[in-house]
Design a protein around this nucleic acid. Sequence first.
RNA 1: GCGCCUGUAGCUCAGUGGAUUAGAGCGCCGGCCUCCGAAGCCGGGUGUCGGAGGUUCAAGUCCUCCCAGGCGCGCCA
Length: 556
Amino acid sequence: MKQDVTEIIDQALAVLGKKWDVDNLPQAEVEFPRDEAMGDFATTIAMRLTKILKKPPQKIAGDIVDEINNQHPDFFSKIEIAGPGFINFTFRKEYFQNCLKTILAEEHSTLNTDIGKGRKIQVEFVSANPTGPLHIGHGRGAAVGNALCNILKAAGFDVQKEFYINDAGLQVKLLGQSVHARYQQLLDNDVPFPEDGYKGDYIELIAKEINRQDGSKYLNQPFNECAAFFTSYSYKMMLTNLAKDLKDFGVIFDKWQSEKELHTKGKVQESLDTLRSKQLIYDEDGAMWFKASDFEDNKDRVVKKQDGEFTYFASDICYHKDKLDRGFDTIIDIWGADHHGYIPRIRSVLEAFDLPKDKFEVILIQMVSLLRNGEPVQMSKRSGAFVTLREVIDEVGADLTKFIFLTRKADSHLDFDLDIAKEQSSDNPVFYVQYAFARISSLFRQAVEKNVSGVTGENIQDADLSVLDEDEAVSVIKKLLQYPVVFEGAVQAFEPHRITYYLQELAGVFHAYYHKHRVVSDDNATTLARLSLCKGVKLVLEEGLKMLGVSAPERM
RNA sequence: GCGCCUGUAGCUCAGUGGAUUAGAGCGCCGGCCUCCGAAGCCGGGUGUCGGAGGUUCAAGUCCUCCCAGGCGCGCCA
């Protein structure tokens, strides 16, 4: 639909451009008018041309309209010039009926635009430390990342979903030490618990599991003698649980990249050597530094500490270089907003390697404040007092949780009140959308049950769509035709939440149509036409929900 | 102190490269099931778009300053 208008305007401009003796006319932008009464599409091209042509916009608009009417008489039912120089287009009803026919014939293929053209794109998200269960903030990252990958894939990108495992460094060691202490305590060896150790119940569960498997094998062994075992056993068990939680949330990664592996394969050292050869690494105060301040960062950063250990940043230097070396056209990192200060650091790294930093994108996910009855729930992994993603899913459901996360843009704060989510659960936007889908499924079951001629399963034969000329029907078709436009915008802006809003609107116009017009009736021709409309709605609802990673139930 | 994000209806939030009269859901009030699913529909909105300047024919949208909230500013990750 959008394409049709754009092409027609461009054709008119091509002719007028010669008449006006101007080349390089700007591309005509089309948009949906705010008010449906103004028309189906509008363009501001006439106003944009006033500076170039030095003529009043209404005059230019008049020329454009005349040319369009000349080239395509009777294509539109109405073209109006309004306000300061808008051109408002209104299609004929037959146009919409034909568009619906196309959607039904081509199904999902007509909904997505090939924007990616096979380009490789990688999205790294969640990447939670394997030192504790996933919390609600990880859930938000998972929902957004997953939906983003879904739309990118649908838009023709070759997408890889990656989870970066922080299995090196102090935090996992601390995890191992915490488990070690609990293990000793379990066997009545009362060793002190590490000061900043992880205190959650899961620590004890891991300790018990080790005890179950190996008995008292490590009793009275100091941590530094069995650190490797406790650390590696603990984070691996955490990772297994993490992957399971994510899977139950509907998120499956293509690749799990180990930080530790970057070290053992010597890649970290290699990256630092390269930087040193460029004189971007220096030693000072017994530590090793990267000259980040030569680039976008405001100060230099330590890559190797005085104690000889690499920092997290050292592996991140290597990791981001490695990602681009793997041949991705774009790499997207999804981070918690509290890591935003890290962006200039990574951009500096890419610059230091002469890598194109515009291939690196960061999507920041703002904090989620978990509330219960309006009261904030404290979230601290180390104290062990937090609500896990698993608990939230069990309490309010995965579909609902994902949908809520996807109803606002990533970069805005979000209050997630468990009680409100549950209270509203019968009156919730996600059910509103799913209900429309289930309702249509029910209509088809109805039609089959009543042996409506021309309907088998959900296939409809030879429907004459000209009866779909009610205002509500036209509104529904128009809304269907907006999907590709919304989709394209969501892909280009990396904003899956736009789909969420769209689906609510689509469900809304459908419910309104349903109440006004009886679908399955004694009039066979009308039944077939209306079922066709429903089928179109169902296809788009299904597609949109799939993008969000939310289920589309046939019955509720 | 410096940096990033946010500030739109009572509440939670949309608002796509500036543009025709600023929207939705919830809540609240009133209607609608002898009829395909009432998890639904219909009707009811007087908003300093945080504030002040600026750019523009045109600003919720762009620029500057200020105010409020959140988050960063580690040889933690």
